[in-house]
Simulated assay, not measured.
Amino acid sequence: MRLSFLSRLFGRGEDDVALALYDSVVAQARLPHWYETGGVPDTIDGRFDMIAAVLSLVLLRLERDPSAATASARLTERFVSDMDGQLRESGVGDIGVGKHIGKMMGMLGGRLGAYRDGLAARALGSALERNLYRAGPPAPAALAHTEDALFAFDARLAALPTPTILAGDIA
């Protein structure tokens, strides 16, 4: 505990790095083009789905670098912490939070697999329809925009060195 306190006092600890990267993930997921041109519902569920999509791509990029395993775990912990706070803020009680978090983690895990497969096949459309447009099929132009933008984001992440990503410089 003392070492953790000192690392926070004198330098950026792992939690600070995870927070900076998570804040960047959320900022990317809240860009207006996802909701305006991409047709992602600007609702609590839609925002969760968009954060999960961007977070998935970042986690998939980090898994390609074994040295980023700890940072990836911390980033996931930040996601859980944020979702916990959001649930509590929206009125979910202590008993229900754990159940909701478990469901969200299962959803994130499913998205990681779906987006991993979609990126490999260069076809994210069906994964996006299932995971991002849960309310119903999007307009073809909206789906194409989101798919293209996520492929472009993935390409940017692939071109960035891991330390740059960990610093939160993913824009």
Rank of each mutant, 00 (worst) to 15 (best):
F79L: 04
S72I: 11
L108C: 10
V80E: 10
G85I: 06
S81K: 09
G38F: 00
L60F: 07
H100G: 04
S72K: 00
R74G: 09
P66F: 02
G85N: 12
V80L: 05
G109P: 01
G106L: 11
R111V: 11
L75G: 01
I44A: 12
T37H: 11
E63Q: 11
D42S: 13
K103V: 15
H100E: 14
M104L: 15
L62F: 05
T37P: 05
S72P: 03
R88G: 08
A52Y: 12
V54Y: 12
G39Q: 05
M83T: 06
T76F: 01
D94H: 10
A52G: 08
Q86W: 04
L87W: 08
Y35N: 03
R61N: 02
A71L: 03
D65I: 04
H100L: 04
E77R: 15
I44T: 15
D94I: 08
G98N: 10
A68T: 11
R111L: 06
Y35T: 00
R61S: 08
G85E: 08
L62M: 05
K103A: 15
L87S: 08
Y35F: 08
G98Y: 06
G98C: 12
I95Q: 15
L57V: 01
Y35Q: 01
R111Y: 10
R111S: 12
G85F: 05
D42G: 11
R111P: 14
M83K: 05
D42I: 01
T43F: 13
R64I: 14
T70I: 08
G102Y: 04
V80S: 11
D45W: 08
H100N: 15
G106I: 09
G39K: 07
R47K: 10
D45R: 14
A73N: 07
L87M: 13
M104F: 14
M105E: 04
G109W: 04
D82G: 14
T76C: 07
A52Q: 12
E36V: 14
H100T: 13
R61A: 02
Q86N: 13
G110E: 06
T43D: 02
D82P: 13
A52D: 15
R78D: 15
G102Q: 03
G93Y: 05
L75W: 01
T37R: 14
G91R: 00
R61P: 06
D94F: 02
V58I: 04
L60Q: 13
G109A: 00
K99H: 07
I51C: 05
G98E: 14
